[in-house]
């Protein structure tokens, strides 16, 4: 079955289970989720709930132990290797711990994917990279190494690198991790503004509840709540805030007593 634009669900996760070889219980447990075309969804959950693992599964960096992931109608399990490559080619991801090539400058980090994947000549890649540099507002920092720029700028380099290849689906793994609230807000707003222009399908993981709630109210996006490898609930910010699920209730209120902390005490 060919994928058409009428198929609204760009990313489908069907009963996916995953565990790292050494883990006792699965990190992702029979998880089912769908992302609609050109929508932004927030993935929220306490740290260790499996957000990073889920995004890496979706980006094809990890293989599900069971279940299947379908991207633009192509099942990653059933696709042959060239179909799989062509599909994942439209998917980009930013990494929680930056994933920037630390021996390459900011500009080289942007040029590298263009040369590697798009096989552009240096001149063409440079011209593309300059555009991206503008987009993520990093003009003037192109010849610095990643560790020479601030945390917020590093995130922007990562976003730029992900967007350089004009992906259709973008996964942002905790793009505000370790940033102050103002820089966090700037980064999220940059992501939202870019999404408005190029209409990509986005999944943004974060453990910052306030930010996710504020932004998703503003742009009417959904929040999916992940806990112990399962999506407990998916809904609007207010549905999540008003949830009667005891885990979500504890998380959104920041309570010390409850199922989230039962193991910790």
């Amino acid at each position: 079955m060919a994928y058409t634009d009428l198929d609204n669900e760009v990313v489908k996760v069907d009963a996916v289970t995953f565990d790292y070889s050494n883990a006792a219980s699965p990190v992702i447990d029979q998880l089912t989720l769908a992302l609609k075309k050109s929508e932004i969804t927030f993935l929220i959950g306490p740290s260790g709930s499996g957000k990073t693992t889920l995004l890496k599964l979706l980006a094809g960096l990890l293989e599900p132990g069971a279940g299947d992931i379908t991207i633009q109608g192509v099942s990653l399990k059933r696709a042959n290797s060239s179909e799989r490559r062509a599909t994942l080619r439209k998917v980009a991801m930013t990494f929680q711990r930056s994933g920037l090539f630390d021996s390459k400058t900011v500009l080289e980090n942007l040029i590298f994917p263009l040369q590697e994947l798009n096989r552009l000549s240096f001149e063409k890649a440079l011209a593309e990279a300059e555009k991206v540099l503008d987009l993520v507002e990093l003009k003037g920092h192109e010849s610095k190494l990643p560790h020479e720029v601030s945390g917020g700028m590093q995130k922007r380099v990562g976003i730029g690198r992900a967007l350089a290849l004009s992906p259709e689906v973008v996964f942002y793994d905790d793009p505000t991790a370790g940033l102050d609230p103002i820089t966090s807000k700037n980064i999220i707003e940059l992501i939202i503004q870019i999404q408005k222009e190029n209409k990509t399908t986005n999944l943004i993981s974060t453990s910052d509840l306030d930010l996710a709630v504020n932004i998703s109210r503003k742009i009417a996006s959904k929040i999916a709540f992940l806990f112990e490898g399962k999506i407990l609930q998916i809904g609007t910010a207010d549905e999540i805030l008003g949830s009667i699920n005891p885990v979500i209730h504890q998380f959104t209120r920041g309570l010390l007593e409850g199922p989230l902390t039962k193991g910790a005490r």
């Binding site: 890496k56 960096l61 990494f95 994933g99 590697e116 994947l117």
Partner: peptide, 8 residues
């Protein structure tokens, strides 16, 4: 991971 994402 970033390398792998670029099919390198």
């Amino acid at each position: 991971d970033a390398l792998k994402l670029l099919s390198i």
